[in-house]
Structure formats: C-alpha cells, structure tokens
C-alpha cells in the first residue's frame, strides 16, 4: 500500500518536478556553465575563463552599487510597506461592513503595471508638474530623480504603494484568525487600545507578519521595472539594483558569461541575506515569546 502510494506521489508531483528540471535546474546549470566562459552566445568559439568573471564582478563598482542599493531599498521599503500594510489591515478589520470591497481596492495597485505606474510618477515629478511649480514658488527646487536619496525614496514609495494592499490582505486574514474572546477578556481587564495592539494583536499577528516581512525583503532583491523606467540605475548608480546590472550586462553589453556570474552572485547574496533575515525574525519572535 505504502509502495503504491509512493508511486502515485511521484506521478502526481512529476509535472512540478519536470517543470523545475526544465525551467529551474536546466537554466541554473546553463548559467553555471556560462559564468566560467567568455562566451557572448554569438561567437562560434569561447574560452573557459575559470573564476575570472566572478573576480571581475567582485571588483566592479557597479556590482558593488547593486549590492548596497538592495539594502538601501530594504531600509526604505520594508518599514514603510509594513507600517502601511498593518495600518490598512487594522483599519479594514475594524470596519463593520464592505471589508472585502476595501481590501480589493487596496489590492488593485498590486495588479497594476510597473511601467504605467512609473510613467505616471515620471509625469508627477516632472520639472513642469504643478507640484514642482508650487514647490519652486515656495523656494524648494528638488531634482527628484536626479538626486540619489530622493531617487531611492521615490522608487521605494512606488513599490510600497504597489505592495501595501497585497500585504494588508495577508495581515487581514491573520487578524481575522485572532479569537475575539481574547479582545473581550482584555476589555474586561481594562486594557487600553495601545496595550491591545502591542500586547495582543501584534503577538498573535506574528505568523502573518513574518510572512509579509520575508516577502517584502525578497522584493528588494528583484527590483527592476520601476528603476528601469524612472532612473535607469542612476544617478551615479544610486539606484542600480541587481536586476538592473544583470540586464545591462546581458542585454546591452551582450556579455552572457559575465552577466551569468553577476546573476549567480546576486542569488548567493539573496540566499544568504534572506537566511539571516529569517533567523533574525525568528529570534525576534522567540525573544518576545510569540512563537
């Protein structure tokens, strides 16, 4: 019986296994191979260059910037999106009616095209936009996309706008799963609203919060469309993300081998970072007795 179940198990998981084999492991092995060559995919011959591509990437200022820019985006994006998503979730959860309607409303930006939202942002931040004309009259002349800090902030805000509704959806389902009797008991004990949030809601929301935080940290390793559309990685590489760097090397400079090395370095950086972040989040939860 167990033996037969095993076979059925393999059979039913085979589509996924095949999919992974073709679209994940295959390209991964191909990428490893390319990374140790100087091949541009066009030339009839190529040379095996060992770790030269990796060594060059580790010395490259634009790869350094891609590494640091990811963490800069993390510092901007993760707190903003977490606070906003939690606020939206708490507000929607407290509504007497039309919760789903509001949640769908907040979720819509997630479905919107990054290209379109970036173009809208470009228009809003234009030198001649009403906002900038007004600011200049107030004596504030800000080059939003031409200044490193504001360019990072703008991209971070666009991403936060996009992902808030999605994370709020996850957090709302977390809030819905908290037993109302806990709140009722707390109310009888005279717990204030602030205590209620910090002592009851947040600890019981921790599993959902953990999920959204991991997702949010993960997003920062994959930023591309907004940066490509708004800044092209500038000014002075201030918004040059991993994806942007890989794109430039692979599709503009046509250096397939080098781009593969950068992509592999990016995946290692992502894996290690997410691993550490996960551990830190678990320690945070354990220290507070939430898990």
């Amino acid at each position: 019986m167990d033996h037969r179940n095993n076979k059925m198990g393999w059979l039913f998981t085979s589509p996924y296994l095949l999919y992974s084999l073709i679209f994940f492991f295959g390209p991964l092995i191909w990428s490893f191979f390319l990374s140790v060559t100087d091949w541009n995919l066009i030339a009839p011959t190529f040379n095996l260059v060992g770790i030269e591509n990796f060594a060059n990437a580790l010395k490259s200022p634009s790869v350094h910037s891609a590494f640091w820019v990811t963490y800069k985006f993390m510092i901007i994006f993760v707190p903003i999106v977490t606070v906003l998503a939690t606020a939206v979730a708490v507000l929607v959860h407290g509504l007497p009616r039309f919760k789903s309607l509001f949640l769908i409303g907040f979720f819509l930006p997630y479905l919107s095209s990054g290209v379109v939202s970036s173009l809208i942002a470009k228009g809003l931040l234009s030198y001649t936009s009403p906002m900038n004309v007004f600011l200049r009259k107030m004596g504030l002349d800000i080059d939003w996309l031409g200044t490193p800090l504001s360019a990072l902030g703008i991209v971070g805000l666009i991403l936060a706008w996009k992902f808030t509704g999605y994370y709020a959806l996850i957090l709302t389902s977390g809030l819905e799963s908290i037993d109302k009797e806990v709140y009722e008991a707390a109310a009888i004990d005279g717990v204030t609203d602030r205590q209620r949030f910090w002592r009851i809601t947040l600890p019981l929301l921790y599993p959902s919060l953990y999920t959204t935080l991991i997702l949010a940290f993960g997003v920062t390793f994959g930023i591309f469309t907004e940066v490509y559309q708004l800044t092209g990685g500038g000014p002075n590489n201030a918004t040059n993300t991993w994806q942007m760097e890989i794109f430039k090397q692979a599709f503009t400079n046509l250096q397939a081998g080098y781009a593969s090395a950068v992509a592999l370095l990016a995946s290692v950086a992502t894996f290690i970072s997410i691993f550490i972040i996960r551990k830190l989040l678990e320690i945070w939860g354990k220290r507070n007795g939430w898990v």
């Binding site: 470009k122 234009s126 001649t128």
Partner: peptide
C-alpha cells in the same frame, strides 16, 4: 541647461 525630467520640453517651449 535643464537636465531634469520635463514633458516634451522643446515642444512646450521650456
């Protein structure tokens, strides 16, 4: 020089 994002600067006379 204005090296800033402007919608169609020449066409709009900026």
């Amino acid at each position: 020089l204005l090296a800033r994002q402007v919608t169609d600067p020449f066409e709009n006379g900026v």
